[in-house]
C-alpha cells in the first residue's frame, strides 16, 4: 500500500497567539511554528502501518511557504520516505488546498491519503472531507483506530454520541484524531538521515489550480474578555452561588 500524508505548518499549539491591533490578522512574525498536532498523528499512523508490513511507501506533502520544509523534514525524520513541498506565499483556502492535493493524488496514485482532522490555526476541519468529495473516494474522519483487513480498512471514528466503526475499500481518505496513537519524537540519527531523503519543491501555481480566495476576510478580532472573578471561602458559599444561578436560570426560561 502506498500512503500520502498531508501535513501543515502552523503556529505551535503551545503559543498564546496575539491578534494584531489593526484587525488584519494574527501575529505570526517571530512566533514558533511546528507541524499541526493532528498531522503528526497522521504521519505516525502511516509509519505504524509500514512497520506492520501493510504499507511500503509513505510520501509527505505540504502546501506552504519555503519554511514549511521544516515540517516535511520532521515527517521524513519520523519515517516517511519522500517529501513534496508545493510552495506558495499566500495561504490558500481549504478548497484550494484540497484541489492541490487532488492534483498530487492524480500524480502519485496512493491507496490511502492520511490527513489531520483539523489544522489548529484556521480550525477548519475541511480538507480531508473535501479531498474525498473531489476524488469521489470513501472517507473516515476523526479516526481513533485504523485496522487493515483483506478488503480494505476498518476505521473507528469518534463521534458526538460515542464511536462508530466503518469498513471501507481502498483507495480511501482517513483523517486522524488525537487518540489514534502517540506520535514518536524522531531520534537524532533519523533527523540527520532526513536531510538526505528526496524532497521535491514545486511552485503550487504550477498545478493549474485556482488559488484565489472565495471568501473575503473583513477583520480578525480578539474574543471578548471575561470580567475578573472572586475566590470563595467555603463550600457553603459555592452552594449558595450555584443555587442562585439555578434560580436565575429558572427565571430566564
Amino acid at each position: 500500500m502506498k500512503i500520502l500524508v498531508a501535513i501543515k505548518r502552523v503556529v505551535d499549539h503551545n503559543v498564546r497567539i496575539r491578534v494584531r491591533p489593526d484587525g488584519s490578522g494574527v501575529e505570526t512574525a517571530g512566533v514558533r511554528m511546528s507541524m499541526n498536532p493532528f498531522c503528526k498523528h497522521a504521519v505516525e499512523a502511516a509509519i505504524q502501518l509500514a512497520e506492520a508490513g501493510k504499507a511500503d511507501e509513505i510520501v509527505a506533502v505540504s502546501i506552504g511557504p519555503k519554511a514549511a520544509t521544516d515540517v516535511i523534514l520532521t515527517a521524513l525524520a519520523m519515517g516517511a520516505q519522500r517529501g513534496i513541498l508545493l510552495e506558495t506565499d499566500i495561504e490558500p483556502e481549504t478548497l484550494a488546498v484540497a484541489r492541490l492535493l487532488a492534483a498530487i493524488v492524480a500524480e502519485e496514485k496512493p491507496d490511502l491519503v492520511l490527513l489531520g482532522k483539523q489544522a489548529v490555526d484556521d480550525d477548519s476541519n475541511h480538507v480531508g472531507q473535501m479531498l474525498a468529495g473531489l476524488l469521489d473516494w470513501p472517507q473516515a474522519t476523526f479516526a481513533s483506530a485504523i485496522a487493515v483487513t483483506g478488503a480494505g480498512l476498518e476505521v473507528t471514528r469518534e463521534v458526538d454520541s460515542g464511536t462508530q466503526t466503518l469498513a471501507l475499500p481502498l483507495p480511501a481518505i482517513v483523517t486522524a484524531d488525537l487518540r489514534l496513537n502517540i506520535p514518536r519524537n524522531a531520534a537524532l540519527p533519523m533527523v540527520m538521515k532526513a536531510r538526505s531523503k528526496p524532497l521535491a519543491v514545486r511552485p503550487a501555481a504550477e498545478l493549474g489550480v485556482d488559488l484565489s480566495p472565495r471568501l473575503r476576510i473583513e477583520n480578525i478580532s480578539p474574543p471578548p474578555e471575561r470580567v475578573a472573578g472572586r475566590t470563595l471561602a467555603s463550600v457553603a458559599e459555592l452552594g449558595a452561588f450555584i443555587a442562585g444561578e439555578l434560580a436565575a436560570g429558572e427565571g430566564r426560561s
Binding site: 491578534v19 476576510i217 473583513e218 480578539p222 474574543p223
Partner: peptide, 29 residues
C-alpha cells in the same frame, strides 16, 4: 467554499467564526 463553526450571523452573507481555538474571531463576507 463552506463557512463552518459560525457563531454569529451578521447578515445574509456575513458571518463570524472562531479560529485559533477561539483566541481570535474572523468576520467574513
Amino acid at each position: 467554499m463552506p463557512v463552518t463553526d459560525v457563531v454569529a450571523i451578521l447578515g445574509p452573507d456575513r458571518f463570524v467564526r472562531p479560529i485559533y481555538a477561539g483566541n481570535a474571531l474572523q468576520t467574513l463576507t
